[in-house]
Design a protein around this nucleic acid. Structure first.
Lengths: 332, 332
DNA sequence: AACATTGCCACAAACGTTTGCAGTCATCGC
DNA sequence: GCGATGACTGCAAACGTTTGTGGCAATGTT
């Protein structure tokens, strides 16, 4: 450890006090222009960087945000992170990414880590299985601002930013049901999550409102493999197989595609497909999968705004929504 | 900020000194079993957690590792991170993920952040465009251990852990050239990177050693879109179009698939395809893409071992390699 | 009985920074 | 000439932890 230029060393060289150096470096009006200049020059020369530990110890919180997601290998979360990183960088903060591996226990460990490191704020998309919210309450008790995004709990006492899920479900129904689909299978995620319930509600509300005579069925799955199996099971159990599938997310779509692959069905001839997606994965397939777009990037921007509001003292709790739009592909 | 149980508060309640509390909590032999018990009980009751800032300030380094990758939305890096996280957790460390966005400037900012936070160690996969290695040298000068993985610089003075790239290129050639391919197009990444050069070398060495009479061509691309365009350009420029494509990575494969899609070619009838991959993406397509598997997870494990060696004082510089194997799909 | 050993504990310095307060000049108004 | 103002600077405490050193009994050794 050589490169340890400290305030003290600078002050020794210049025969001034530590406090003067400290103030000079942050342009405090109390110190003369001349000393400021000398201090800054030497600091530059010595490659001085304030010791983050000491600063944080003093200020009692660090300048890094944490983002906790079930799995980062996900284009939606990826673009979310990107948006937050951009904004954080702009105000001199940085971002640390934590994965819960979809395991509430790991999630809690990560929260401990955040508490332990007194992060400036936390963005979190909860696990499918998260039920105990006390670790989150604990965070608020020690004044660490918290913004839930995408996968948010149903609890009303938290700040949340989410996709306009109802609307995107409605939009999906609108496009899929006006196509020739006779028998539609909805493949949804964990039905305890509000994201799932809202998207399904949006879809089925459209369905009922327009008094569709088509057959509608719903299955639920927590991850790729379950989604694949659920589709295969449904096809095995129903003589009259579906003519279209609605998938509520990228992850579900991967499972659905695997099932379609296994069943050797052709898209869109044998089966039509519509998903809700961030937009990257659907373009990798042939034909392109049609999707209702939900932008992780925009959600990140929105979340950051909310975070700053909270940090600025606006403590009132609310939930924000982000709108979505339809991108036709070749799968319908 | 309420939950601030400190050593001092505990010591006050128990009428012992701060140092005794500190030692009691870490089972120092100097303190009596009885006091230990009392201290630990009260600490538990007060929900005491050591203040990380103070600990780090004292110890001069934190217990978090940093992983810097061009883009985290990548299954290879994702499984790498997973492996490192597992091992780090085991020794009480945590991991922070940083993205360079494939931009050397952001990469350097991230390195600054690491230096600034005195991370325990850094795992880094460099940018395609990284040429200036001085920021990395600077890191070693202040004793922050550094392990390059996957995308490593050519410089010989660093610790590196990488895929046995030559071997995987060789293996790919072995399988692709014994298939009926008459005219093979190699789509490679940035050819300044050793990963690219080695994979290509492995492939072409096999080709020459076996005196294949087939036509061989190589194009380079830095990202998905460039890969797509490179393939389209090659097809446009060559009357005799390739019968097979070798892609050196998941990312390149995505571009290649888009091009194949644009050209409306059938796999494997019109064009055969073999890629090097972590194994997730190839299974999402129909037919499955054949691939030579490189495990990000295993690479993570290996890198962590190397990191621990360095931290343990074994300073000698070396490069480790990880072997790969072939997974047949339906694309050949 | 004198001395060394051991078990337990407290004191205090250090890590590097920030910041309220007080001190030292010189200048200015009267 | 005297108090007041203002510009600049230094002192010292605080943030919470770790750890070397030394003290003080009680026990063991000769």
């Amino acid at each position: 450890m050589r490169n340890n230029a400290t305030l003290k060393k600078i002050s020794d060289h210049l025969n001034v006090s530590i406090s003067t150096v400290s103030r000079a470096l942050k342009d405090h009006p109390d110190v003369s222009p001349d000393t400021k200049k000398r201090v800054k020059e030497l600091a530059m020369l010595m490659d001085y960087e304030p010791n983050a530990f000491a600063v944080n110890l003093r200020k009692k919180h660090s300048n890094v945000f944490a983002i906790i997601v079930p799995e980062i290998s996900n284009f939606f979360y990826h673009s979310f992170v990107q948006a937050v990183e951009e904004d954080a960088r702009r105000i001199g903060y940085s971002v640390m990414i934590l994965q819960s591996m979809n395991d509430p226990e790991v999630e809690e460990q990560n929260l401990r880590l955040c508490r332990h490191n007194h992060v400036a704020g936390i963005f979190v998309a909860i696990t499918n299985k998260t039920t105990d919210l006390t670790p989150f309450k604990k965070l608020e008790a020690i004044d660490i601002p918290l913004v839930f995004f995408d996968k948010v709990p149903t609890d009303d006492t938290f700040n949340k930013v989410s996709i306009a899920d109802y609307e995107s479900g409605w939009m999906a129904a609108e496009h899929l049901l006006t196509a020739t689909a006779k028998h539609v299978l909805l493949v949804m995620g964990n039905n305890k999550l509000s994201i799932t319930r809202r998207r399904e509600e949006g879809f089925t509300d459209y369905y009922h409102k327009h008094q569709c005579k088509k057959k509608l069925a719903v299955v639920y799955a927590d991850h790729i493999e379950e989604a694949r199996q659920a589709v295969l099971d449904y096809f095995a159990a129903n003589k009259n197989t579906p003519t279209a599938i609605f998938s509520m997310s990228d992850e579900i779509m991967c499972g659905v595609l695997k099932a379609i692959h296994t069943l050797k069905l052709q898209i869109p001839k044998d089966i039509q497909l519509l998903t809700i997606s961030n937009g990257f994965l659907p373009t990798l397939f042939t034909p392109d999968i049609s999707f209702v777009k939900t932008s992780g990037y925009d959600l990140g921007k929105l979340s950051f705004v909310r975070m700053q509001e909270i940090m600025g003292g606006k403590k009132f709790v609310r939930e924000n929504f982000l709108t979505s739009s339809y991108y036709p592909g070749g799968s319908m």
